[in-house]
Design a protein around this nucleic acid. Structure first.
Lengths: 131, 131
DNA sequence: TGTGACTGGTATCTATTCGACACCACCTAG
DNA sequence: CTAGGTGGTGTCGAATAGATACCAGTCACA
């Protein structure tokens, strides 16, 4: 419950007024973790299979399984089992998942553009600490 | 190490070819966690003080302290100590932090727009599981 | 003159979560 | 017969998050 909403004379940029902030927090808690973002990110390229993602992302089988299940439950990812021999499982983004791609890519692009800035900041901070 | 880069006939949207993906993963591991995003999100509204953020976000003191320190190290957040009595500490975004706001807000906006979709998906998924 | 609450933290202890590993059934190649 | 692929689940120790206590100092209330 936000206590001090009275002095927002700043550059309030978007949607926000307290209970909305709570809902955002709620959603980000669900889909805002590292592996969810990474999975959405790579599925944006197209269909992937379980072990393919595992190798590509360097994620443990357990976390991949759990995260994919959660994303499927949230309606971002679709799981398709092909009853061949051996059985083959494809993972794709749903429409909802694809719409989530845009903000995820925006973050990815920012990450790429600013990795060097962050590294410089870190080095400067660490150097300053050594006094 | 991506193994299968050959069949990207899909809507490959942005920067990506393996080692770039690794760097994105690296940055997202740093600033992509829930509390970092939430802190950037609320600092986007303007200067905040330590306990103000603590109350607003519902974060523990320890995590707030640690996350702010990490964000300061990464150059996204600036800490200003006013040597008054009692001492007062202000937290602001740096220019780098403000540039990060855009993708963060994009995610927040998506979260807000799609919370209901996610809830419906979850309910449907859970109902289907009960067979 | 306590005592309760505020400031911005740190230290500690515990609960949750994560990742490594083993295991499953089944198939194929050597 | 063994090694490796498929897509997972179960277990266990380590890392991590959150709750709580505590710090030094100041203020208001009674």
């Amino acid at each position: 419950m936000p206590k001090d909403q009275s002095q927002e004379s700043h550059t309030a940029p978007a949607v926000q007024d307290g209970q909305q902030c709570d809902r955002i927090k709620e959603v980000l808690s669900r889909v805002g973790d590292r592996w969810s973002v990474m999975i959405i990110f790579s599925l944006g390229r197209g269909t992937m299979r379980f072990n393919e993602m595992k190798r590509y992302l360097g994620i443990s089988q357990r976390m991949l399984s759990l995260t994919l299940k959660a994303l499927e439950r949230d309606g971002l990812v679709q799981r398709t089992l092909h009853p061949t021999v051996p059985p083959r499982v494809d993972y794709d983004l749903t429409d909802l998942g694809r719409s989530f791609c845009e903000p995820v890519y925006a973050m990815g692009r920012w990450a790429l553009d600013n990795l060097d800035n962050i590294d410089r900041s870190r080095a400067a901070y660490d150097a300053a600490q050594e006094d």
